[in-house]
Each structure stands twice: as C-alpha cells, then as structure tokens.
Nucleic acid binder design. Structure first.
Lengths: 341, 341
DNA sequence: TTGTAAGCGTTATCAG
DNA sequence: CTGATAACGCTTACAA
C-alpha cells in the first residue's frame, strides 16, 4: 500500500524499513547517526518508495527555509540576469535556493513580492537598490530577516549593500566628456521612478556640470524605459531641439545602442557628429558599431559578493557589511571631442 | 506579549481579537464568512500585529502551494528571460508565484533543480525543451504534478508542450540560403548537449541540404556556448578552412552577432563576402550592422501560452494540450547570394 | 543507537 | 456564524 502512494512521507519510509520516523529523519540529515544495518534498510526503503522530503514540513519544523528571495526590476535586463546568475551559483554552493521575482519597476508590486517572499519563509532577501518604503525594512528587521541591497552602494544606511557609486561613476564619465569640450549634453536616463540608481547617475552628470562651471540649463534629460527602441526614439527627440547636443550620455548600454542606431539612420557619424556613451558594459557595448565607450560594472562579482555577504549574515548572525565595488570607464569609439561647427 | 512577537501567528491574532483561530482563518480567506462585528476586530488585530500568513503552514494544510517552478538553461539569455517574464506575468494574474532555477545546460543539475522544486511543493513545472531522463517525467506523473514543456513543440509525446518546430523553422531558412545559390555552409549551433532545440535546428539544416541534393559534407558544424565572443571565435575557425563557406547559419542571434563582428574585424563585407543568419529575433538582431536576417520566435507569446495552459491543467485537471506556434523568417540585410568568386 | 511524542501554523470537518 | 480538534510531514528534546 505504501508502495503505490503518490507522495510518500517519512512515515511510509519508516514503516517499510521497520524503524521510527525519528530514525529515518536522522538518517536523511546525517547518515552517520544511524548504524550501518539500519542505514541499508532506510536507503532501500527510500528509493523503493521514491521518497523526497517535503519542504514545507521541514520548514515548519526547523523554521529555516534555505531559500533566499531576490526581487529585481525585470528579468529582461542582461545586467540583472548576469548578476543574479552569479548570485544564484554562489548561494547554491552553500545549499540555498534562490527565488526570483520581478517588480516591473513598480514600488507597489515590489512590496507585494517582498511580502510573498517573506510568507514563503525566505531566510534572506536581496532587493535591488536601496530606495523603498521604510516600513518594508522595519518589517523585515522585526522578523529578523537579513537584507542585502545590491546594485547601489550606500555608505550611510542601516542596510548592508554591495554595489558601486552610481553617482561618482557617472560623474567621472560626464567629466571626461566635458573636458573633451562638450557643452550641451543630452541625457537618456533609465526610467527614474522607484529607481535611485538612475537618479544618482543623473546627479552625477549634474555634479560634473557644476564642477566645470556649466549651467545646468545645458542639460536635457529624458527617461524612457529600458529598451533599445526607446533609446532610438529619445535620441530623435534630443536631436530635434533648437541647439543639438553634441554628446548623449545614456543611463545604460541598451539605451545607448538604440541611440547609436538612430544616429546611423539619421546619417550622423559617431563620434564625429555626435558622441554617445553607455553604462554597464554588457557584451552589446563591445559589438556595437562604433563600439561603445561606457562604464564597466562588475555584475557577476557583485552577485557573488552579495551572496557571500548574505550567507555570512545568515550563518553567523553578523550585521552585514557593505562593500563598494570599483567601476571604471572603458574607452572605446563612441566618445570624442565635439566637431567645431 | 503577542504585540512584540517577531512573527505573529494566527493564534496571536485570534487571541487579540478574542476569537478562535478557525474564525481568523475564515476571515482571512473570505471576509464574508464572518459577521461585520468580528471582521472589524480581526482587521484591527491583524494590522496591529503586522500579521502575515505563514506559507509553509498553509501549504501543509491545503497541499497546494500556488507556486510554479520553471527550470531554464540560463538566465543570461534574453530569450528565456523574455518568455519567462511573460510566463510570470500571466501566472501572477492567476495568483501563482513562479520560482525560477537555472540548470546551466547540465542534465544532472537540471534533475536536481526539478527535485528541489518538487520538494518545494510546486503545483506545476515548466522545463525548457523535452529531452530528459524519462524517470523525471514518471516521477512527476506519479506525484500528479502537471508539466508543460516550452520552447520546443513536440507532437507525439505524453507531455504537453507549447513551442515551435525548431527543425522546420531552421530548414526553411537553410532552404532559402541554398536557393540563393549557397553550397558550402558553416554552422555555428548553440551548445547541443542536453539541448534538443539546437540539435533539431541542425537537423533542419541537414534536411534542407538533402532536399536540395547537397552532400552533407558541405556542412561544417561548431557548437560553442551561448556568448557573443564564442560566435566570433567560431566564425574565425570556419573561415580558416580550406574552402571558406559563403554562408554561416547560426543557432541563435547572439552567436550570429559575434560572427558578424568578427567578419567586420576581418574586413569581410556581409553579405557580399559572406552571409550570416541568426535565430530568435531578439532586439540585438535589429540593431546589428548589418541587420540580421533571422527566424522570428514569439517568445512572450510562448510564455503566456505556457502559463495559460498550465493554469488550465491545474484548475481543471485537464491533460494539457500542446500548442504549436508559428515562426517566420525576418529578412533583413545579412543574407544574400554568394558572390561569384 | 533508537523510539516516543510534542510542536511548527494553517485549514477543514464537524458540532454547537 | 463560530469553536474544538484533528490532520498535514518533519524535527527534536527527552527517554529508554
């Protein structure tokens, strides 16, 4: 009878092996805790029944799910995908499973997903970026669930983070453009609502402008959603202004490639007629024509570090340290001095 | 005391509201099943405590997790990401949460991930492609867990699938190349182990060759992992053969873009000196230079359909229907007739 | 080394 | 409409 049972339980194994459930449980969690003789019997019973432990039951008993929840804005973005893959691989090494949900850049949805993850007993949580309703952090803290923020390094917060300084990185790039002689700057930012990373990058551009004594009125900023198409459209808009900007700083490589593409369609040479820069340094940046000058971000490294930090918080109940990763500008061919018109 | 409890349970709410746990449970699942008076008290108690239902406990009680597990080869592939996003959105509408794991194209790992998902009480499973140890399907069937295969339509199997005919689609493209006058064909396939999609596409090319009376010795096949770089390397290899192929059929757009890039580096004009085709039609294909002639696959549609079908199997205990989606060739600029040398 | 039995947080059945 | 109470499958003292 137990042999045909669709979902055998520990009790079925115990019965078949002629031992108690406690013994089977011990065998499953650490074979050395039972003697050879019983070990054999259990082993046989287990695979004759095709037994698989029930996760929910185990979670209830030990109050630990070995599950980490990650909430990303969208899966359709190579940088999150890549970082997450590394995050996942590292965690897998330590026996954790990662549950991924996406928020579609919507704070409400994000909050809901986080609640769902918590309800699913996630042992830890990895949201992207830092900005969100403080209530969320409070609730997580009360439940004693470790949180690690990624993709944005924040020095002065309670929440541990592993990321980079979006603002400084973009400022560096903007500075370079300005020193090259650019005055009028077009910006195609990533969507900014509920996305401090995009906002910080814009701030970085403003910082650079101020430092170089450029009036902020030289900046025109657009922020379409992450899509090649949108980068192209935004480029057109920027180019239809009275005075065309000679450089377009983009919030990410995808948008930048769209801009590059549209420039070509409009018969504009890059960087002779107009310069375009990206951010992230995904593969796309290298194969674009011309190759994109961009900011390199160590996505995989970030994912790995986030995972390691989370494991540390989990295993040692440490408060969680923040790590700031370095980024650097990758000079390729899309940024040059403005042509003197 | 219950007020400071880090993880309030139903019992805490019940106590605070002065009712039984059964009543609170009813209230939570359908507010109409309790009278107004108690409803108010519960409401207050719930948010004073910041109560959130415990998922594992609920799963144990109802034997239903409202969770679907998806196992994809890798997250770092735009096509899976996109399809999955749609899959997830559709499922979310119906109240399901999707758990994503990746197998890194490794059958062993994949089996493990599926087991993990089952242990996590997934109500349904979505693996990519059809080929895997029959034991896995048998086990899933015994446990009565609906399975839906995606990305590959299989007419004659027990397992429901939603996908397209990889073989026919690629055959059509190869046919077109051959009719254009191509004889020697280089193939840069996606990795083929544990990946029948890639194998079927290669078969499609062979079919086309046979149909046109071309000896299979005209084909040279390489199958590096999914990466732009690898496409470039493979291209170099194909070009260092005695007789250079005049057309390179790639298993996906990413590999094709790598090939395109390397062609440019080698000073070869596409399609004048050599033609290159892709498969998938991701955004990248449109912005590549020259724009890639490729096979369009409705990824989002596929994700959505897979989700809908799974929901149907789940809610109505139907056996699960298979759906074959149409693909079509998108002619852009990378495929042309061979230059007469 | 092994067994007994309590408990984890819900839901569901069955009375009231 | 509401309250007891028995599952659900596993772990873990505590005993033997």
């Amino acid at each position: 009878m137990s042999k045909l049972c669709p979902t055998p339980a520990l009790a079925d194994v115990a019965k078949l092996a002629g031992v108690s459930t406690a013994t089977v449980s011990r065998y499953l969690n650490d074979p050395n805790r039972v003697v050879e003789a019983t070990r054999q019997r259990e082993l046989k019973a287990v695979d004759r029944l095709g037994y698989t432990p029930n996760f929910a039951a185990r979670v209830m008993a030990v109050k630990r799910s070995w599950t980490i929840g990650a909430i990303i804005p969208t899966m359709e973005n190579a940088i999150f995908a890549r970082g997450l893959q590394a995050f996942q691989e590292e965690l897998h090494q330590h026996g954790y499973t990662v549950l991924v949900s996406s928020s579609a850049y919507d704070p409400e949805l994000e909050a809901e997903k986080i609640r769902t993850l918590v309800a699913h007993d996630a042992d830890g949580v990895l949201p992207i970026g830092h900005d969100r309703d403080p209530k969320i952090y409070k609730d997580l803290a009360r439940r004693d669930i470790p949180v690690m923020n990624a993709w944005s390094f924040m020095a002065y917060t309670q929440i541990a983070s592993v990321g980079f300084d979006n603002r400084a990185a973009m400022a560096e790039l903007a500075n370079r453009a300005i020193r090259l002689g650019h005055q009028r700057i077009g910006v195609i930012s990533d969507i900014t609502t509920g996305n401090e990373r995009a906002r910080l990058r814009i701030e970085g551009i403003r910082d650079a402008a101020r430092q170089n004594g450029l009036s902020l009125s030289n900046l025109t900023i657009l922020d379409p959603p992450y899509q090649i198409e949108n980068g192209a459209e935004a480029f057109s808009k920027l180019m239809s202004q009275g005075i065309r900007p000679k450089v377009i700083l983009c919030g990410n490589d995808v948008l930048a490639v769209g801009a590059l593409h549209r420039a070509r369609d409009m018969g504009l040479k890059v960087p002779k007629d107009v310069s375009v820069t990206g951010f992230d340094d995904i593969e796309l940046a290298r194969v674009a024509a011309p190759a994109l000058t961009t900011v390199h971000v160590p996505h995989r490294e970030m994912g790995r570090r986030a995972a390691a930090a989370l494991v540390d918080m989990l295993e040692n109940r440490t408060p969680g340290a923040s790590t700031r990763l370095a980024t650097h500008i990758v000079e390729r061919q899309s940024l040059g001095p403005p042509a003197s018109t």
